[in-house]
Computed example of a mutant assay.
Amino acid sequence: MRFLKFGILALALLSAAACSQKKFYNYRGPEVTQVVVNKGERRLHLLHHNKVLESYDIGLGFAPRGHKVVEGDGKTPEGLYYIDRRNPNSKFHLSIGVSYPNPYDRANAQAMGKSPGGDIFIHGRGDNYPKGAPRDWTAGCIAVSDKQIRDIYSMVQDGTPIIITP
């Protein structure tokens, strides 16, 4: 009787897991040593040293040209940053944080009497993706599809450098 109850419980849990969309993958390939974002090409590359492991099409902030200077400017930052956090419960499916603003960004915005903003992420679309939105629709983040952010989330570790170029 005890084994029957255990068997039924195990079967129920396996069935529930099979029906749900898998949010996290296990990545067992080469370490991602650097993320490179080329804003002009609208491409994100995951590299292991000098070898490109994966590349993705991206969307940017709604005002994609130029470096992010102040909160609300709709620009995606440019420069060297780091992956500094992750959010498995993001309203945009999954997200990994970019360390913007750095000390230079803060000083530059402060000199103008403004806030540099923050909360820059690489994220999916989630349920909040505006239907029919243009390619560059975020407030300054880097957007990919939900499937792509699952891959990126599993491959990129906190502390990984990210270089964002014009």
Score class of each variant (00 low, 15 high):
residue 88 P to M: 07
residue 63 A to K: 10
residue 103 P to V: 07
residue 51 K to V: 04
residue 146 D to I: 03
residue 44 L to F: 04
residue 143 A to L: 10
residue 30 P to H: 04
residue 71 E to S: 14
residue 132 G to P: 10
residue 54 E to D: 15
residue 86 R to Y: 13
residue 38 N to Q: 08
residue 13 L to S: 08
residue 119 D to Q: 11
residue 139 A to R: 03
residue 11 L to Q: 07
residue 88 P to A: 13
residue 67 H to Q: 12
residue 94 L to V: 04
residue 164 I to A: 00
residue 45 H to Y: 14
residue 108 N to L: 12
residue 101 P to G: 02
residue 43 R to C: 00
residue 22 K to V: 15
residue 30 P to T: 05
residue 135 R to E: 12
residue 160 T to N: 09
residue 53 L to T: 01
residue 135 R to A: 14
residue 38 N to D: 08
residue 129 Y to M: 12
residue 128 N to M: 13
residue 81 Y to S: 02
residue 116 P to K: 12
residue 109 A to M: 03
residue 114 K to S: 12
residue 115 S to Q: 15
residue 12 A to I: 06
residue 29 G to R: 13
residue 94 L to F: 00
residue 14 L to M: 11
residue 46 L to Y: 01
residue 49 H to Q: 14
residue 156 V to W: 01
residue 107 A to Y: 13
residue 125 R to C: 09
residue 77 P to Y: 01
residue 107 A to K: 14
residue 39 K to M: 08
residue 44 L to I: 06
residue 115 S to K: 13
residue 139 A to E: 03
residue 22 K to E: 15
residue 108 N to A: 11
residue 165 T to F: 05
residue 4 L to V: 14
residue 98 V to M: 03
residue 137 W to I: 05
residue 163 I to R: 01
residue 98 V to W: 01
residue 70 V to P: 06
residue 77 P to I: 02
residue 56 Y to V: 08
residue 109 A to N: 06
residue 41 E to F: 08
residue 10 A to R: 11
residue 23 K to H: 12
residue 57 D to A: 15
residue 23 K to E: 09
residue 46 L to S: 00
residue 134 P to Q: 08
residue 94 L to E: 00
residue 38 N to F: 06
residue 108 N to P: 06
residue 56 Y to E: 09
residue 111 A to S: 15
residue 42 R to A: 03
residue 136 D to N: 14
residue 52 V to F: 10
residue 151 D to F: 06
residue 104 Y to M: 08
residue 56 Y to P: 03
residue 52 V to W: 09
residue 138 T to P: 12
residue 13 L to T: 06
residue 73 D to K: 10
residue 22 K to G: 15
residue 32 V to W: 00
residue 139 A to G: 08
residue 7 G to M: 07
residue 74 G to V: 07
residue 72 G to V: 05
residue 80 L to S: 12
residue 45 H to V: 09
residue 139 A to I: 03
residue 163 I to H: 03
residue 84 D to F: 02
residue 146 D to Y: 03
residue 78 E to S: 03
residue 78 E to N: 03
residue 101 P to W: 01
residue 113 G to C: 15
residue 96 I to F: 04
residue 95 S to P: 08
residue 34 Q to M: 10
residue 165 T to W: 05
residue 163 I to T: 05
residue 112 M to S: 14
residue 66 G to N: 01
residue 45 H to E: 10
residue 127 D to R: 13
residue 43 R to P: 01
residue 68 K to I: 04
residue 94 L to P: 00
residue 60 L to E: 05
residue 67 H to S: 11
residue 154 S to Y: 09
residue 104 Y to C: 06
residue 116 P to I: 09
residue 29 G to Q: 12
residue 17 A to M: 14
residue 95 S to A: 15
residue 77 P to M: 04
residue 35 V to L: 05
residue 128 N to E: 14
residue 96 I to W: 02
residue 95 S to K: 05
residue 67 H to A: 11
residue 156 V to S: 05
residue 122 I to D: 01
residue 107 A to L: 11
residue 43 R to H: 02
residue 138 T to N: 13
residue 69 V to L: 10
residue 34 Q to R: 10
residue 46 L to Q: 02
residue 57 D to I: 13
residue 85 R to C: 15
residue 162 I to Y: 01
residue 152 I to K: 02
residue 47 L to P: 01
